[in-house]
Protein backbone atom coordinates (compact mmCIF):
# COMPACT_ATOMS: atom_id res chain seq x y z
CA UNK A 1 0.00 0.00 0.00
CA UNK A 2 1.45 3.36 -1.02
CA UNK A 3 -0.63 5.22 1.62
CA UNK A 4 -1.37 4.59 5.30
CA UNK A 5 -4.84 3.20 6.15
CA UNK A 6 -6.08 6.64 7.18
CA UNK A 7 -4.77 8.25 3.99
CA UNK A 8 -6.30 5.47 1.90
CA UNK A 9 -9.73 5.93 3.53
CA UNK A 10 -9.50 9.68 2.87
CA UNK A 11 -8.28 9.17 -0.71
CA UNK A 12 -10.97 6.67 -1.76
CA UNK A 13 -13.54 8.52 0.37
CA UNK A 14 -12.98 11.75 -1.53
CA UNK A 15 -13.33 9.97 -4.87
CA UNK A 16 -16.53 8.29 -3.65
CA UNK A 17 -18.06 11.52 -2.28
CA UNK A 18 -17.17 13.54 -5.38
CA UNK A 19 -18.75 10.90 -7.63
CA UNK A 20 -21.90 10.84 -5.46
CA UNK A 21 -22.16 14.65 -5.52
CA UNK A 22 -21.91 14.71 -9.34
CA UNK A 23 -24.55 12.01 -9.70
CA UNK A 24 -26.98 13.69 -7.29
CA UNK A 25 -26.43 17.29 -8.39
CA UNK A 26 -29.02 17.42 -11.23
CA UNK A 27 -31.64 15.86 -8.92
CA UNK A 28 -30.85 18.32 -6.12
CA UNK A 29 -30.98 21.32 -8.47
CA UNK A 30 -34.24 20.18 -10.10
CA UNK A 31 -36.30 18.33 -7.45
CA UNK A 32 -39.50 16.43 -8.24
CA UNK A 33 -41.80 18.79 -6.35
CA UNK A 34 -40.80 21.79 -8.45
CA UNK A 35 -41.46 22.22 -12.12
CA UNK A 36 -38.27 21.57 -14.10
CA UNK A 37 -37.43 24.60 -16.29
CA UNK A 38 -38.40 24.02 -19.93
CA UNK A 39 -34.83 24.21 -21.17
CA UNK A 40 -33.62 21.58 -18.68
CA UNK A 41 -36.55 19.31 -19.54
CA UNK A 42 -35.59 19.75 -23.19
CA UNK A 43 -31.99 18.75 -22.38
CA UNK A 44 -33.35 15.72 -20.56
CA UNK A 45 -35.15 14.65 -23.71
CA UNK A 46 -32.38 15.36 -26.19
CA UNK A 47 -29.16 14.49 -24.31
CA UNK A 48 -29.73 10.69 -24.22
CA UNK A 49 -29.54 10.74 -27.99
CA UNK A 50 -26.21 12.57 -27.94
CA UNK A 51 -24.47 10.75 -25.09
CA UNK A 52 -24.49 7.22 -26.46
CA UNK A 53 -22.54 8.43 -29.50
CA UNK A 54 -20.10 10.10 -27.11
CA UNK A 55 -19.76 6.83 -25.16
CA UNK A 56 -19.01 4.90 -28.34
CA UNK A 57 -16.21 7.34 -29.15
CA UNK A 58 -15.07 7.23 -25.49
CA UNK A 59 -14.68 3.44 -25.79
CA UNK A 60 -12.76 3.80 -29.05
CA UNK A 61 -10.68 6.79 -27.95
CA UNK A 62 -7.37 4.96 -27.74
CA UNK A 63 -7.27 3.65 -31.29
CA UNK A 64 -4.65 5.14 -33.55
CA UNK A 65 -4.88 5.35 -37.33
CA UNK A 66 -1.19 6.17 -37.67
CA UNK A 67 0.27 3.16 -35.85
CA UNK A 68 -0.28 -0.59 -36.29
CA UNK A 69 -2.93 -2.08 -36.14
CA UNK A 70 -4.53 1.21 -37.32
CA UNK A 71 -7.75 0.63 -35.39
CA UNK A 72 -8.57 -2.32 -37.64
CA UNK A 73 -9.73 -4.77 -34.90
CA UNK A 74 -12.16 -2.15 -33.59
CA UNK A 75 -13.40 -1.03 -37.02
CA UNK A 76 -13.89 -4.58 -38.33
CA UNK A 77 -15.71 -5.67 -35.17
CA UNK A 78 -17.87 -2.53 -35.15
CA UNK A 79 -18.76 -3.19 -38.80
CA UNK A 80 -19.75 -6.77 -37.93
CA UNK A 81 -22.01 -5.47 -35.15
CA UNK A 82 -23.61 -2.82 -37.35
CA UNK A 83 -24.30 -5.21 -40.26
CA UNK A 84 -25.57 -8.02 -38.01
CA UNK A 85 -27.76 -5.68 -36.00
CA UNK A 86 -29.34 -4.02 -39.04
CA UNK A 87 -29.86 -7.43 -40.61
CA UNK A 88 -31.07 -9.62 -37.69
CA UNK A 89 -31.90 -6.98 -35.05
CA UNK A 90 -30.96 -9.39 -32.26
CA UNK A 91 -29.10 -7.67 -29.42
CA UNK A 92 -27.26 -10.70 -28.01
CA UNK A 93 -26.25 -11.98 -31.42
CA UNK A 94 -24.82 -8.58 -32.39
CA UNK A 95 -22.97 -8.04 -29.11
CA UNK A 96 -21.76 -11.64 -28.84
CA UNK A 97 -20.53 -11.96 -32.42
CA UNK A 98 -18.87 -8.53 -32.33
CA UNK A 99 -17.05 -9.29 -29.08
CA UNK A 100 -15.88 -12.74 -30.19
CA UNK A 101 -14.73 -11.24 -33.49
CA UNK A 102 -12.73 -8.60 -31.60
CA UNK A 103 -11.17 -11.17 -29.26
CA UNK A 104 -10.12 -13.38 -32.18
CA UNK A 105 -8.66 -10.39 -34.00
CA UNK A 106 -6.59 -9.07 -31.08
CA UNK A 107 -5.49 -12.50 -29.86
CA UNK A 108 -4.61 -14.20 -33.13
CA UNK A 109 -4.30 -11.73 -35.97
CA UNK A 110 -3.15 -8.30 -34.83
Amino acid sequence: MPFTIGESVLFFGIISLTTIVIRFLPFILFPENKKTPGYIAYLGRVLPYTIIGMLVIYCLKDISFTASPFGLPELISAAVIIVLHLWKNHTFLSIGAGTIMYMLLVQFIF
Partner: peptide, 28 residues
Protein backbone atom coordinates in the same frame (compact mmCIF):
# COMPACT_ATOMS: atom_id res chain seq x y z
CA UNK B 1 -15.04 -4.90 -26.09
CA UNK B 2 -18.42 -6.27 -24.96
CA UNK B 3 -19.22 -2.86 -23.45
CA UNK B 4 -18.24 -1.06 -26.66
CA UNK B 5 -20.47 -3.53 -28.53
CA UNK B 6 -23.34 -2.77 -26.15
CA UNK B 7 -23.02 0.97 -26.78
CA UNK B 8 -22.83 0.44 -30.55
CA UNK B 9 -26.03 -1.64 -30.50
CA UNK B 10 -27.83 0.97 -28.40
CA UNK B 11 -26.56 3.63 -30.77
CA UNK B 12 -28.05 1.77 -33.77
CA UNK B 13 -31.37 1.36 -31.93
CA UNK B 14 -31.42 5.07 -31.18
CA UNK B 15 -30.63 5.87 -34.77
CA UNK B 16 -33.53 3.74 -35.97
CA UNK B 17 -35.99 5.13 -33.43
CA UNK B 18 -35.09 8.82 -33.83
CA UNK B 19 -37.25 10.83 -36.16
CA UNK B 20 -34.70 13.61 -36.11
CA UNK B 21 -31.07 12.60 -36.44
CA UNK B 22 -29.49 15.92 -35.42
CA UNK B 23 -28.99 14.92 -31.73
CA UNK B 24 -27.46 11.52 -32.57
CA UNK B 25 -25.15 13.04 -35.17
CA UNK B 26 -24.25 15.87 -32.80
CA UNK B 27 -23.09 13.48 -30.09
CA UNK B 28 -21.05 11.39 -32.49
Amino acid sequence: FVLTALFIVIFINQWKSATNHIPVLTGL
